[in-house]
Amino acid sequence: MANVVVFGIEGESDLWIADLSAGTVSKIGKPTQGELATVDKLRAAGTTIVKGVNLAVTAQSSASVAGGFMDG
């Protein structure tokens, strides 16, 4: 199982890294080279890139997730 997820939120330029083992989420610096830089440029142009993730949903707050915002 993967222990780290890198993600970006639509409308924001920052990238984040979630360390699932440590239970932490941190902003990472803008990648300047390599595959992460390539996909970040594609993302900035409006492309959605997904690899190894089978569910991702944005919400306004953790309370809305706990409250079942996707129910019904």
Rank of each mutant, 00 (worst) to 15 (best):
1 M>D: 08
1 M>Y: 03
2 A>D: 05
4 V>L: 07
6 V>F: 07
6 V>R: 05
7 F>N: 01
7 F>R: 03
8 G>T: 02
9 I>W: 00
9 I>D: 00
9 I>Q: 02
9 I>E: 04
9 I>C: 01
11 G>W: 10
12 E>G: 02
12 E>Q: 14
12 E>V: 05
13 S>A: 12
14 D>M: 03
15 L>T: 01
16 W>T: 01
18 A>N: 09
19 D>K: 05
19 D>I: 01
20 L>T: 08
22 A>C: 04
23 G>P: 02
23 G>D: 13
24 T>Q: 07
24 T>H: 08
25 V>S: 14
28 I>A: 01
28 I>Y: 02
29 G>Y: 11
30 K>P: 00
31 P>I: 06
32 T>E: 15
32 T>F: 09
33 Q>H: 15
33 Q>F: 12
34 G>H: 08
34 G>I: 05
35 E>G: 01
38 T>S: 15
38 T>W: 04
38 T>R: 12
38 T>P: 00
38 T>V: 10
40 D>P: 02
42 L>C: 03
42 L>K: 12
42 L>Y: 05
43 R>F: 07
43 R>A: 02
43 R>P: 00
44 A>G: 01
44 A>Q: 13
46 G>Y: 10
48 T>S: 13
48 T>W: 06
49 I>R: 00
49 I>V: 09
52 G>E: 07
52 G>V: 05
54 N>D: 14
55 L>W: 07
56 A>K: 07
57 V>H: 12
57 V>F: 05
58 T>H: 03
59 A>K: 10
59 A>T: 13
59 A>R: 10
59 A>M: 09
59 A>Q: 10
60 Q>S: 09
61 S>E: 12
61 S>V: 06
61 S>Y: 11
63 A>W: 05
64 S>H: 12
64 S>L: 13
65 V>Y: 13
66 A>T: 10
66 A>S: 12
66 A>F: 13
66 A>Y: 12
69 F>S: 09
69 F>R: 11
70 M>D: 15
70 M>S: 13
71 D>Q: 15
71 D>P: 02
72 G>Y: 10
